[in-house]
Amino acid sequence: MTQLQFNLNLDILKESVMDSNIDSVIKASIVLVLNEFMEKERDDHLKASAYERTPSRHDYRNGYYERELLLSIGKIVLRVPRTRSGDFSTSVFEQYARCDQAFVLSMLEMVVNGVSTRKVSNIVEQLCGQKVSKSFVSTLTEKLDPVVNKWANRPLNTMYYPYIFADAMYIKVREHNRVVSKAVYIATAVDENNRREILGLRVDHVESCEAWQRFFQHLQSRGLQAPKLIISDAHKGLKAAIGKEFVGSAWQRCTVHFKKNIITHMPKK
């Protein structure tokens, strides 16, 4: 196990403690530990300590450069060691990226849950004391694309789904500098272990038989087998698409939609 010897600047720590600024104490401690760790990594790379003369020396020291690191308690500045040949690379930032990823995922989760980019930027500023632009948050959400695409195209032939619920909802979407209404087709299944699973979703302009057929054909291309029963509302286009794409599957009208249809024809009293 690597052993580190820290030369702590007690004046900085004492000043932070006296000022009762616990964040400053944590930041100063992290900076000292990480700087010392990178120094040790450079020694191991050079195979020689500072001012040590040895025939096994690999290279020579070449000062430091500063690099910022954003933590949940704020931004810190580290002194990253360099070598003359430039082939030394510290593992600190690579290792921290795994921890930093949790912070990034928290930001992405806020976006998924409907928090605006402006609010996400304000939250990050309050947590870290460092303001991030709305464009940075927007760029960050692009990291969701490969995750969503992998989920949306996952194979469905690994399990049989005897019951499928099909429904559509309308959402507002910004398209070509204007807000329009679009239909989102959603298929939810119940597997043989009685667990619910969203099979997929698709955005289209309107709810029609042709659009539902394209959605069902996409699910079938991923390996979906014809279920025993499909539950949906009584939309004519949806019923027609089910009859064409899932021959032999039984259809049942959704009782929730049926009750809502009845209520719309009842007196408000």
Rank of each mutant, 00 (worst) to 15 (best):
V17A: 10
Y185I: 00
K134T: 14
Q95T: 12
L32H: 08
S116L: 02
F93R: 04
K119W: 00
Q220T: 03
D44F: 05
F6T: 05
M110N: 05
D191F: 06
I12A: 11
S133V: 03
F103P: 02
Y170L: 04
V80K: 04
M1K: 14
V173F: 12
V104L: 15
L32Y: 03
T158R: 02
D11M: 04
S133C: 10
R84G: 06
N193F: 06
K269M: 06
S138I: 07
S106L: 09
G200T: 07
E192N: 12
I12E: 12
S181Y: 04
V115S: 08
R67G: 10
E109S: 14
L144M: 02
N193Y: 09
A240P: 07
A102K: 14
L71Y: 02
S56A: 13
V104D: 15
S89Y: 13
D204L: 05
K75W: 10
H265C: 05
V256I: 09
N194S: 12
I262W: 06
E36C: 14
L201N: 11
Q217M: 13
I186L: 15
Y161D: 03
D59S: 11
E207T: 06
K244G: 02
V80W: 03
V173P: 10
V148L: 15
E245G: 05
Q5N: 12
L108W: 00
N9D: 14
G129D: 11
Y185E: 00
D100S: 14
C209D: 10
N149D: 13
D100H: 15
S72N: 13
Y161C: 01
V92S: 02
T54Y: 05
Q217F: 08
G243Q: 13
K269P: 00
M18Y: 07
D204V: 10
L105G: 10
V120G: 00
P55L: 01
R82C: 05
Q5P: 01
R98S: 13
L224N: 07
V184N: 02
L13P: 02
P55V: 03
N9K: 09
V104M: 15
K47Q: 13
K150L: 11
Q213C: 13
Q225G: 02
R214V: 09
Q130A: 15
P227L: 03
L46Q: 05
K27V: 06
F88K: 03
E52V: 10
R195L: 14
A28H: 02
F93C: 06
A50N: 12
T2V: 15
S232K: 04
K47D: 12
L70I: 09
V25W: 04
A166W: 09
K27P: 00
A48K: 09
R84L: 12
N62W: 06
E175Y: 12
E109Q: 13
L105V: 11
L199K: 08
A28G: 00
G74P: 05
I263P: 00
A152G: 07
T2S: 13
F6A: 08
K236T: 09
K269R: 06
H176K: 07
A166T: 15
I123M: 11
Q252W: 00
F88Y: 12
I242E: 01
N35Q: 05
T90V: 04
I30W: 02
R84H: 11
